[in-house]
């Protein structure tokens, strides 16, 4: 029998951890480097999303290995798992899920505590920057690896004066899993 799923808190308590400030400042250094190199804020948003995607497609393995979570029955469960287990086990913070559409394919993940943005304030020249765009890339990449194509956008951003961070997740399509082998082989 498969071991029971573990809670985000339990996993986080057991993994190696580092000071969040090192993480925050390193992320800040990355964003600053991108702004210098790419100059256009839109390009930086794109690059951050790409970096997140690269992380997401690898991070999902660790996530599945440590959480013992098996297939979610629907997108609602998936979103809950991302918010409660995923965010907790990597970033040490929990998020909540709300604002479901009637079809159950679009929802919001709301983050009130976000280690990426300590010490950060957006200058006037960077108003179009989605500073945390790496996070949306991570979620998109990770979900793609478990057969879900999603579109993820920022609805609220505390760096832009909102009261929380809100990621809007839209399930575009669920790609049926294809096995690289056939049963009779």
């Amino acid at each position: 029998m498969a071991p029971p799923p573990r809670s985000g808190d339990a996993i986080f308590a057991n993994v190696d951890r580092v000071n969040a400030e090192l993480f925050t400042l390193t992320y800040g250094a990355i964003v600053r480097q991108l702004l210098t190199d790419l100059e256009e804020v839109d390009e930086v948003n794109k690059q951050l999303d790409q970096m997140g995607y690269n992380i997401g497609i690898r991070l999902i393995d660790e996530f599945l290995a440590k959480s013992n979570i098996s297939t979610c029955v629907d997108f609602k469960e998936t979103a809950e798992v991302i918010a409660k287990v995923g965010f907790k086990m990597f970033l040490g913070v929990t998020a909540s899920v709300s604002n479901w559409d009637p079809e159950g394919t679009t929802c919001s993940i709301i983050l009130e505590d976000n280690p990426l943005v300590d010490f950060v304030e957006l200058p006037d020249t960077c108003q179009g920057l989605y500073y945390c765009n790496i996070l949306s890339g991570v979620v998109r990449g990770a979900l793609e690896m478990v057969s879900m194509k999603t579109e993820i956008t920022w609805v609220r951003d505390m760096l832009r004066g909102d009261d929380a961070f809100e990621l809007r997740l839209k399930l575009l399509k669920q790609v049926p899993e294809e096995y690289p082998y056939k049963d009779d082989e």
């Binding site: 993994v15 951890r17 000071n19 969040a20 993480f23 690269n54 992380i55 990597f90 280690p115």
Partner: peptide, 27 residues
């Protein structure tokens, strides 16, 4: 000012750092 007691997982940092290195390799 934060007390600096907050933590994130080492893998979160390692993933981020690896992206920093990989991005800079392209430059």
């Amino acid at each position: 000012i934060s007390k600096g007691k907050q933590e994130v997982s080492l893998s979160a940092f390692a993933f981020l750092f690896s992206e920093l290195v990989q991005y800079n390799q392209t430059q």
